[in-house]
Protein backbone atom coordinates (compact mmCIF):
# COMPACT_ATOMS: atom_id res chain seq x y z
CA UNK A 1 0.00 0.00 0.00
CA UNK A 2 1.37 3.35 -1.03
CA UNK A 3 0.61 5.65 1.87
CA UNK A 4 0.67 9.44 1.60
CA UNK A 5 0.44 9.95 5.32
CA UNK A 6 1.71 7.65 8.00
CA UNK A 7 1.32 8.30 11.70
CA UNK A 8 3.46 5.94 13.72
CA UNK A 9 2.47 5.28 17.36
CA UNK A 10 1.68 8.89 18.08
CA UNK A 11 1.07 9.80 21.72
CA UNK A 12 0.10 13.11 23.24
CA UNK A 13 -0.56 14.08 26.82
CA UNK A 14 -1.96 17.30 28.19
CA UNK A 15 -0.92 17.35 31.80
CA UNK A 16 -2.41 14.17 33.24
CA UNK A 17 -4.83 13.68 30.41
CA UNK A 18 -3.82 11.31 27.62
CA UNK A 19 -5.30 12.59 24.37
CA UNK A 20 -3.68 10.00 22.11
CA UNK A 21 -2.14 6.74 23.13
CA UNK A 22 0.18 5.22 20.53
CA UNK A 23 -2.12 5.74 17.58
CA UNK A 24 -0.90 4.58 14.16
CA UNK A 25 -2.70 5.16 10.90
CA UNK A 26 -1.73 4.96 7.25
CA UNK A 27 -3.67 6.94 4.69
CA UNK A 28 -3.30 5.50 1.18
CA UNK A 29 -2.61 7.90 -1.65
CA UNK A 30 -5.72 8.94 -3.51
CA UNK A 31 -8.10 7.49 -0.95
CA UNK A 32 -10.86 9.02 1.09
CA UNK A 33 -10.02 8.12 4.62
CA UNK A 34 -12.62 8.31 7.36
CA UNK A 35 -11.32 9.17 10.78
CA UNK A 36 -14.14 8.17 13.09
CA UNK A 37 -14.73 8.31 16.78
CA UNK A 38 -17.07 9.63 19.44
CA UNK A 39 -16.66 13.17 20.71
CA UNK A 40 -13.50 13.65 22.73
CA UNK A 41 -11.86 10.49 21.39
CA UNK A 42 -8.76 12.33 20.20
CA UNK A 43 -9.56 12.91 16.52
CA UNK A 44 -8.95 16.63 16.67
CA UNK A 45 -5.67 16.17 18.52
CA UNK A 46 -4.47 13.80 15.83
CA UNK A 47 -5.51 16.24 13.11
CA UNK A 48 -3.75 19.08 14.90
CA UNK A 49 -0.61 16.99 15.06
CA UNK A 50 -0.81 16.31 11.33
CA UNK A 51 -1.22 20.06 10.80
CA UNK A 52 1.77 20.74 13.08
CA UNK A 53 -0.43 22.83 15.34
CA UNK A 54 0.68 20.68 18.25
CA UNK A 55 3.68 18.41 18.49
CA UNK A 56 3.35 14.76 19.53
CA UNK A 57 5.11 13.69 22.72
CA UNK A 58 6.29 10.48 21.11
CA UNK A 59 5.84 8.88 17.71
CA UNK A 60 6.27 10.39 14.30
CA UNK A 61 4.25 11.49 11.31
CA UNK A 62 5.48 11.03 7.76
CA UNK A 63 4.08 12.81 4.74
CA UNK A 64 5.14 11.25 1.47
CA UNK A 65 7.80 9.38 3.39
CA UNK A 66 9.34 12.47 4.98
CA UNK A 67 9.03 13.53 8.60
CA UNK A 68 6.74 16.55 8.92
CA UNK A 69 8.41 19.90 8.56
CA UNK A 70 7.36 23.52 8.30
CA UNK A 71 7.29 23.48 4.48
CA UNK A 72 4.73 20.66 4.46
CA UNK A 73 2.13 23.19 5.55
CA UNK A 74 1.55 24.10 1.93
CA UNK A 75 0.83 20.45 1.10
CA UNK A 76 -2.06 20.26 3.53
CA UNK A 77 -5.47 21.90 3.45
CA UNK A 78 -7.46 21.83 6.65
CA UNK A 79 -11.08 22.73 7.26
CA UNK A 80 -11.70 22.67 11.01
CA UNK A 81 -15.04 21.70 12.48
CA UNK A 82 -15.45 25.11 14.04
CA UNK A 83 -15.39 27.21 10.91
CA UNK A 84 -13.77 30.58 11.18
CA UNK A 85 -13.06 33.58 9.02
CA UNK A 86 -12.41 37.24 9.80
CA UNK A 87 -15.92 38.64 10.01
CA UNK A 88 -15.10 42.21 9.09
CA UNK A 89 -12.63 41.43 6.32
CA UNK A 90 -13.68 41.38 2.69
CA UNK A 91 -14.06 37.93 1.14
CA UNK A 92 -11.54 38.50 -1.66
CA UNK A 93 -8.83 39.99 0.55
CA UNK A 94 -9.33 37.25 3.07
CA UNK A 95 -9.06 34.43 0.56
CA UNK A 96 -5.89 35.94 -0.92
CA UNK A 97 -4.37 36.52 2.51
CA UNK A 98 -4.99 32.98 3.72
CA UNK A 99 -3.70 31.53 0.44
CA UNK A 100 -0.53 33.59 0.72
CA UNK A 101 -0.03 32.35 4.26
CA UNK A 102 -0.05 28.88 2.73
CA UNK A 103 2.81 29.94 0.51
CA UNK A 104 1.10 30.95 -2.73
CA UNK A 105 2.44 33.99 -4.54
CA UNK A 106 0.04 36.89 -4.91
CA UNK A 107 -0.49 36.36 -8.65
CA UNK A 108 -0.96 32.67 -8.19
CA UNK A 109 -3.39 33.21 -5.35
CA UNK A 110 -5.35 35.61 -7.51
CA UNK A 111 -5.52 33.14 -10.36
CA UNK A 112 -6.59 30.25 -8.16
CA UNK A 113 -9.18 32.38 -6.38
CA UNK A 114 -10.71 33.50 -9.66
CA UNK A 115 -10.89 29.86 -10.76
CA UNK A 116 -12.70 28.71 -7.65
CA UNK A 117 -15.02 31.70 -7.43
CA UNK A 118 -16.07 31.07 -11.00
CA UNK A 119 -16.42 27.36 -10.46
CA UNK A 120 -18.69 27.75 -7.46
CA UNK A 121 -20.41 30.75 -9.02
CA UNK A 122 -19.71 33.04 -6.09
CA UNK A 123 -17.85 35.84 -7.85
CA UNK A 124 -20.39 38.40 -6.66
CA UNK A 125 -19.25 37.96 -3.05
CA UNK A 126 -15.69 39.10 -3.69
CA UNK A 127 -16.14 42.54 -2.16
CA UNK A 128 -18.58 41.58 0.57
CA UNK A 129 -17.62 41.15 4.17
CA UNK A 130 -18.06 37.72 5.73
CA UNK A 131 -20.58 39.13 8.20
CA UNK A 132 -22.83 40.05 5.27
CA UNK A 133 -22.97 36.43 4.07
CA UNK A 134 -25.21 33.64 5.30
CA UNK A 135 -23.75 30.73 7.21
CA UNK A 136 -23.89 28.44 4.19
CA UNK A 137 -22.26 31.07 2.00
CA UNK A 138 -19.45 31.52 4.50
CA UNK A 139 -19.00 27.75 4.48
CA UNK A 140 -18.40 27.84 0.75
CA UNK A 141 -15.72 30.47 1.25
CA UNK A 142 -14.22 28.27 3.91
CA UNK A 143 -14.12 25.41 1.46
CA UNK A 144 -12.39 27.57 -1.15
CA UNK A 145 -9.85 28.67 1.46
CA UNK A 146 -9.14 25.03 2.27
CA UNK A 147 -8.55 23.85 -1.29
CA UNK A 148 -7.13 27.01 -2.88
CA UNK A 149 -3.47 26.07 -2.69
CA UNK A 150 -4.02 22.69 -4.33
CA UNK A 151 -2.82 20.57 -1.40
CA UNK A 152 -1.91 16.92 -1.67
CA UNK A 153 -3.71 16.17 1.54
CA UNK A 154 -7.10 17.60 2.44
CA UNK A 155 -8.47 17.27 5.94
CA UNK A 156 -12.13 17.99 6.50
CA UNK A 157 -13.53 18.02 9.99
CA UNK A 158 -17.29 17.44 9.72
CA UNK A 159 -17.34 18.78 6.16
CA UNK A 160 -21.10 18.79 5.60
CA UNK A 161 -22.34 20.35 8.78
CA UNK A 162 -23.92 23.71 8.07
CA UNK A 163 -24.63 23.02 4.41
CA UNK A 164 -28.13 22.58 3.04
CA UNK A 165 -28.62 19.34 1.05
CA UNK A 166 -28.06 21.04 -2.31
CA UNK A 167 -24.80 22.66 -1.30
CA UNK A 168 -23.71 19.58 0.61
CA UNK A 169 -24.07 17.65 -2.65
CA UNK A 170 -22.16 20.32 -4.54
CA UNK A 171 -19.30 20.18 -2.06
CA UNK A 172 -19.35 16.39 -2.10
CA UNK A 173 -18.94 16.40 -5.86
CA UNK A 174 -16.10 18.90 -5.59
CA UNK A 175 -14.36 16.71 -3.02
CA UNK A 176 -14.74 13.61 -5.22
CA UNK A 177 -13.39 15.54 -8.17
CA UNK A 178 -10.38 16.65 -6.14
CA UNK A 179 -9.79 13.04 -5.20
CA UNK A 180 -9.96 12.03 -8.88
CA UNK A 181 -7.41 14.73 -9.63
CA UNK A 182 -5.02 13.07 -7.21
CA UNK A 183 -5.68 14.56 -3.79
CA UNK A 184 -5.90 12.39 -0.70
CA UNK A 185 -8.70 13.18 1.67
CA UNK A 186 -9.24 12.64 5.37
CA UNK A 187 -12.73 12.97 6.75
CA UNK A 188 -13.18 13.35 10.43
CA UNK A 189 -16.81 12.82 11.20
CA UNK A 190 -19.46 10.99 13.09
CA UNK A 191 -22.01 11.29 10.30
CA UNK A 192 -21.99 7.75 9.11
CA UNK A 193 -24.01 8.14 5.90
CA UNK A 194 -21.25 10.22 4.34
CA UNK A 195 -18.63 7.72 5.47
CA UNK A 196 -20.60 4.87 3.95
CA UNK A 197 -21.00 6.79 0.75
CA UNK A 198 -17.55 8.24 0.23
CA UNK A 199 -14.81 6.64 2.32
CA UNK A 200 -12.81 3.65 1.20
CA UNK A 201 -10.71 3.38 4.38
CA UNK A 202 -11.58 4.10 7.96
CA UNK A 203 -9.89 4.27 11.33
CA UNK A 204 -11.88 4.32 14.52
CA UNK A 205 -10.45 6.12 17.52
CA UNK A 206 -11.98 5.59 20.90
CA UNK A 207 -10.77 6.96 24.22
CA UNK A 208 -7.37 7.98 22.83
CA UNK A 209 -6.75 4.55 21.26
CA UNK A 210 -7.21 3.32 17.76
CA UNK A 211 -9.61 0.40 18.01
CA UNK A 212 -10.18 -0.43 14.36
CA UNK A 213 -8.84 0.44 10.94
CA UNK A 214 -8.65 -0.81 7.40
CA UNK A 215 -10.44 -0.87 4.10
CA UNK A 216 -14.20 -0.58 4.53
CA UNK A 217 -14.99 -3.71 2.48
CA UNK A 218 -12.50 -5.76 4.49
CA UNK A 219 -13.90 -4.51 7.77
CA UNK A 220 -17.43 -5.20 6.66
CA UNK A 221 -16.48 -8.70 5.64
CA UNK A 222 -15.03 -9.24 9.09
CA UNK A 223 -18.09 -7.88 10.79
CA UNK A 224 -20.71 -9.65 8.71
CA UNK A 225 -22.10 -12.77 10.39
CA UNK A 226 -23.75 -14.58 7.48
CA UNK A 227 -27.17 -13.18 8.13
CA UNK A 228 -29.84 -12.90 5.48
CA UNK A 229 -33.03 -10.98 5.40
CA UNK A 230 -35.74 -13.00 3.70
CA UNK A 231 -39.38 -12.68 2.69
CA UNK A 232 -41.31 -15.81 1.72
CA UNK A 233 -44.88 -15.59 0.45
CA UNK A 234 -47.33 -17.92 2.26
CA UNK A 235 -50.64 -18.08 4.11
CA UNK A 236 -50.49 -16.35 7.46
CA UNK A 237 -51.63 -19.59 9.10
CA UNK A 238 -48.45 -21.28 7.89
CA UNK A 239 -46.10 -18.71 9.53
CA UNK A 240 -45.77 -20.54 12.85
CA UNK A 241 -44.94 -23.87 11.28
CA UNK A 242 -42.28 -22.35 9.03
CA UNK A 243 -40.70 -20.49 11.97
CA UNK A 244 -40.47 -23.64 14.07
CA UNK A 245 -38.94 -25.54 11.18
CA UNK A 246 -36.33 -22.90 10.38
CA UNK A 247 -35.39 -22.25 13.99
CA UNK A 248 -34.28 -25.85 14.35
CA UNK A 249 -31.52 -25.29 11.79
CA UNK A 250 -30.73 -21.58 12.02
CA UNK A 251 -30.84 -18.59 14.31
CA UNK A 252 -33.89 -16.58 13.40
CA UNK A 253 -35.26 -13.21 14.43
CA UNK A 254 -38.07 -11.05 13.10
CA UNK A 255 -37.32 -8.62 10.28
CA UNK A 256 -39.04 -5.46 9.17
CA UNK A 257 -39.31 -4.26 5.61
CA UNK A 258 -42.00 -3.23 3.16
CA UNK A 259 -43.58 -5.85 0.92
CA UNK A 260 -46.67 -6.07 -1.25
CA UNK A 261 -47.74 -9.60 -0.44
CA UNK A 262 -48.26 -11.52 2.82
CA UNK A 263 -44.66 -12.51 3.50
CA UNK A 264 -43.07 -14.22 6.39
CA UNK A 265 -40.24 -11.77 7.15
CA UNK A 266 -37.22 -13.06 9.01
CA UNK A 267 -33.57 -12.41 9.68
CA UNK A 268 -31.72 -15.66 9.52
CA UNK A 269 -28.21 -16.31 10.68
CA UNK A 270 -26.88 -19.37 8.90
CA UNK A 271 -23.58 -19.71 10.76
CA UNK A 272 -20.14 -20.50 9.36
CA UNK A 273 -20.81 -23.95 7.93
CA UNK A 274 -23.96 -23.46 5.88
CA UNK A 275 -24.01 -21.80 2.47
CA UNK A 276 -26.61 -19.27 1.33
CA UNK A 277 -27.90 -21.84 -1.14
CA UNK A 278 -28.73 -24.21 1.71
CA UNK A 279 -30.96 -21.58 3.21
CA UNK A 280 -32.43 -20.84 -0.19
CA UNK A 281 -33.33 -24.50 -0.63
CA UNK A 282 -34.95 -24.64 2.78
CA UNK A 283 -37.02 -21.56 2.09
CA UNK A 284 -38.28 -22.80 -1.28
CA UNK A 285 -40.35 -25.45 0.41
CA UNK A 286 -42.57 -22.86 2.03
CA UNK A 287 -43.44 -20.76 -0.99
CA UNK A 288 -42.37 -18.01 -3.35
CA UNK A 289 -39.14 -16.18 -2.21
CA UNK A 290 -39.76 -12.46 -2.76
CA UNK A 291 -36.86 -11.14 -0.78
CA UNK A 292 -33.39 -12.53 -0.17
CA UNK A 293 -30.65 -10.14 0.87
CA UNK A 294 -27.41 -10.59 2.72
CA UNK A 295 -27.24 -8.29 5.72
CA UNK A 296 -24.05 -6.23 5.45
CA UNK A 297 -23.22 -4.39 8.62
CA UNK A 298 -23.37 -0.62 8.18
CA UNK A 299 -20.49 1.52 9.32
CA UNK A 300 -22.91 2.84 11.89
CA UNK A 301 -23.42 -0.67 13.30
CA UNK A 302 -19.69 -1.33 13.31
CA UNK A 303 -19.06 2.00 15.00
CA UNK A 304 -21.59 1.36 17.77
CA UNK A 305 -20.57 -2.26 18.18
CA UNK A 306 -16.88 -1.43 18.44
CA UNK A 307 -17.34 1.49 20.77
CA UNK A 308 -19.58 -0.53 23.09
CA UNK A 309 -17.16 -3.43 23.03
CA UNK A 310 -14.38 -1.11 24.18
CA UNK A 311 -16.23 0.60 27.02
Amino acid sequence: MNALLVADSVSKKFGNFTALNGVSIAVPKGSIFGLLGPNGAGKTTLIRIINQITMPDTGSVLLDGQPLEQHHISDIGYMPEERGLYKSMKVGEQVLYLAQLKGLSKENANKRAKYWFEKLDIGAWWNKKIQELSKGQAQKIQFVVTVMHNPKLLIFDEPFSGFDPINANLIKDEILQLRDEGATIIFSTHRMESVEEMCDHIALIHKSNKVLDGEITTIKREYKNNTFEVGVEMEEAAFAKARTHLSQKFNISPAHFKSLSTDLKLKIEIGDKAQPNDLFAELRQFGQINHFVEVIPSVNDIFIQTVNKNV
Binding site: I53, I76, M79, Y86, L98
Partner: peptide, 16 residues
Protein backbone atom coordinates in the same frame (compact mmCIF):
# COMPACT_ATOMS: atom_id res chain seq x y z
CA UNK B 1 -11.65 37.99 18.09
CA UNK B 2 -9.59 35.38 16.27
CA UNK B 3 -10.28 32.93 19.01
CA UNK B 4 -14.04 33.43 19.10
CA UNK B 5 -14.19 33.54 15.28
CA UNK B 6 -12.35 30.24 15.32
CA UNK B 7 -10.23 31.43 12.45
CA UNK B 8 -7.27 30.82 14.69
CA UNK B 9 -7.19 27.13 13.81
CA UNK B 10 -7.13 27.88 10.10
CA UNK B 11 -4.31 30.34 10.54
CA UNK B 12 -2.09 28.33 12.81
CA UNK B 13 -2.36 25.41 10.46
CA UNK B 14 -0.46 27.75 8.12
CA UNK B 15 1.83 29.75 10.40
CA UNK B 16 3.44 29.25 13.78
Amino acid sequence: EEKTNRIIEVIISSVK
